[in-house]
Amino acid sequence: MTVRLTLISPATSEALREVRFDDESPLDPAGLARAEAAAAATVPAARAYTSPSLRCRQTAQALGLRPEPSADLAGCAMGRWRGRTLDAVAAAEEEAVAAWLTDPAAAPHGGESLREVRLRVGAWLDTLPDRSGHITAVAEPDVIRAAVVHALAAADETFWRIDVRPLTATHLTGRAHRWNLRIGSTLEQTAGR
């Protein structure tokens, strides 16, 4: 049996709008309203998971999901950059940001490297039982990027070439070490699939 995994990115939050490394800020009112409006288009799944972040948990709740939190789906641990805007960090640590954006093994912030995130998320993907059926997971954009990089066996450097918009669904089908990808649908486009 093939695993059908739908990865849903969270709705907008103040941190996302400010391009700020997540600091557990809640969804903004517009993001919450959009997630609630998309609830009817969310396809029921045999199992549901969520990143442990507040915005992912709130998105899942607004979509009507009852997900199991998974530490394996946590966003990248950003160390001392957590809660700061990218612009502020770049102004203070220009070389460190350049290293982070170009070297998947770099973790100048003292947290996780993007490679470590990809390995963690990839291990989670590859341990999904073949008989799982349809699974939905509300996950941070960096987790979805990591899942796509892993699923396609792409180079870690492709991480930054994947754009994950708020409240969109990314679909992976297959099983460990053999995944297919369908990307970019809004939740309204996933109804009935």
Rank of each mutant, 00 (worst) to 15 (best):
G111A: 09
P52A: 08
R20I: 10
E112D: 13
R17W: 00
G111R: 13
V89E: 06
V97T: 04
D23F: 10
I144H: 06
A35S: 10
L27A: 11
L128K: 06
A106P: 07
A88W: 01
H177C: 09
P141T: 02
T127D: 11
S25K: 10
I8C: 05
S25Y: 00
E14M: 08
T59K: 07
P69C: 11
H134W: 08
T186Q: 08
E112Y: 10
V148T: 13
V97G: 08
T186S: 15
T102C: 08
R178F: 00
E18Y: 00
A91E: 12
H109I: 00
R34P: 01
V121K: 03
L128P: 02
L65K: 05
Q58P: 12
A154Y: 02
P44L: 03
A107T: 08
R80M: 12
P141V: 05
V121P: 03
A139R: 04
T42H: 11
P141S: 13
E188Y: 05
E14L: 12
A98Q: 13
L16P: 01
A151I: 08
I135P: 06
L114M: 12
L54S: 02
D87C: 00
Y49L: 09
T168E: 14
G75W: 00
T50R: 14
A39T: 01
W160I: 02
P69S: 12
L86A: 15
I183P: 03
D142E: 13
A123V: 05
T42S: 14
W179Y: 07
R182G: 13
T2D: 13
L32V: 01
G111Y: 05
A40G: 15
A71N: 12
V117K: 01
E157I: 11
A191Y: 01
T59R: 08
D23Q: 15
P52T: 11
L128S: 01
S113N: 13
G83C: 10
L65Y: 04
L167T: 09
I162L: 15
G79Q: 06
L125S: 09
L128W: 03
S132P: 07
H150S: 14
L32W: 06
A137N: 10
G111H: 06
S9E: 06
E93R: 11
E112L: 13
A35G: 08
G31N: 12
T136G: 10
L172D: 04
H109C: 13
D28V: 06
E68C: 07
W179R: 05
G184M: 07
A169N: 01
A176C: 03
E140F: 08
A146L: 05
D23I: 00
R161K: 14
G111F: 03
T6S: 15
T59C: 03
R120M: 07
T6E: 09
R193N: 11
V97K: 03
L86G: 11
V138Q: 14
G184H: 02
R165I: 09
E68W: 07
D126S: 06
R115Y: 07
T186V: 01
T12S: 15
S25W: 00
M78W: 14
S9V: 01
